[in-house]
């Protein structure tokens, strides 16, 4: 292979039944990059992430992680190799406590000390979670739930963090906080694949960006360049 990309998709095609959702996606993420995938509703953003994490299977193409083929890895194994997926709509477990939600993130870890130290780390990013440890996940506000969803993913100590619309439905000030934390995680060496409808904010923090339209990548480039691209401005930033 000789590939240096942390994550690389080549010609990935995914179907839902007979409907083709991804029509040959090529993208890559390098170590320490923030890469964003923007596009409108139903363009295939979430499907791309789901295909990477193994929640849906691709029909064609390949997915490599640090050069290893992970194309057909089921979801519960993808998280083990180092890819964490924060799903759209946060999807925290509503009737588990905050603590249990975090513990679920560390499900594969047997060493209690490791779990404890990771949890401490999560609390450094999200002190709010520590105050709410025994509260049921479903009773928290949207912003807190998003923090919990990210915290839960951090319990896996991933190399690649995939976030599916973390800004959805949140107040601007909370969105800013979340994006600050994403940048902070990236500064610590984590590679980020960020899916967003909020194109402006996503491109702002991204090193590179891809624009997806009806299952195809139609544009790619450096984040700030894409921001000034007229097509993008008209379609997503208006």
């Amino acid at each position: 292979m000789g590939s240096t990309h942390v994550l690389e998709l080549k010609n990935v095609e995914t179907y839902y039944g007979k409907i083709q959702a991804l029509k040959g996606i090529d993208l890559y993420v390098d170590k320490g990059e923030i890469v964003t995938l923007i596009g409108s509703n139903g363009a295939g953003k979430s499907t791309t992430l789901k295909t990477i994490s193994g929640q849906v299977k691709s029909k064609n193409g390949s997915i490599h992680y640090n050069g290893d083929d992970i194309t057909s890895l089921p979801a519960h194994k993808t998280s083990l190799v180092g890819i964490a997926h924060v799903p759209e709509g946060r999807r925290i477990f509503p009737r588990l406590s905050v603590k249990e939600n975090l513990l679920i993130g560390a499900f594969s870890i047997k060493d209690k000390k490791v779990i404890e130290s990771r949890m401490k780390r999560v609390f450094e990013y999200f002190p709010r979670l520590k105050e709410r440890l025994d509260q049921k996940g479903g009773t928290m506000s949207g912003g807190e739930q998003q923090m919990l969803a990210i915290g839960r993913a951090l319990m896996m100590k991933p190399d690649v963090l995939m976030l599916d619309e973390p800004s959805m439905g949140l107040a601007p000030i909370i969105v800013e906080q979340i994006f600050d934390i994403i940048k902070e995680l990236n500064n610590q060496g984590m590679s980020i694949l960020l899916v967003e409808q909020n194109a402006y904010q996503a491109l702002h923090i991204a090193d590179r960006g891809y624009v997806i339209q009806t299952g195809q990548i139609v544009l790619e480039g450096v984040g700030t360049e894409l921001m000034t691209n007229r097509q993008i401005q008209e379609a997503y930033l208006a």
Binding site: S53, G54, Q55, P74, A75, H76, K77, S79, L80, A84, H85, P87, R91, F93, P94, R95, L96, E100, L103, I104, G105, F107, S108, R152, M156
Partner: peptide, 22 residues
């Protein structure tokens, strides 16, 4: 731990699989 995994799967099977739960 397995009881917790069971409750997680009952609440959201898809997301549980993202948490390295088989």
């Amino acid at each position: 731990k397995w009881g917790m995994a069971m409750r997680a799967v009952a609440q959201d099977r898809e997301t549980a699989s993202l948490m390295s739960i088989n």
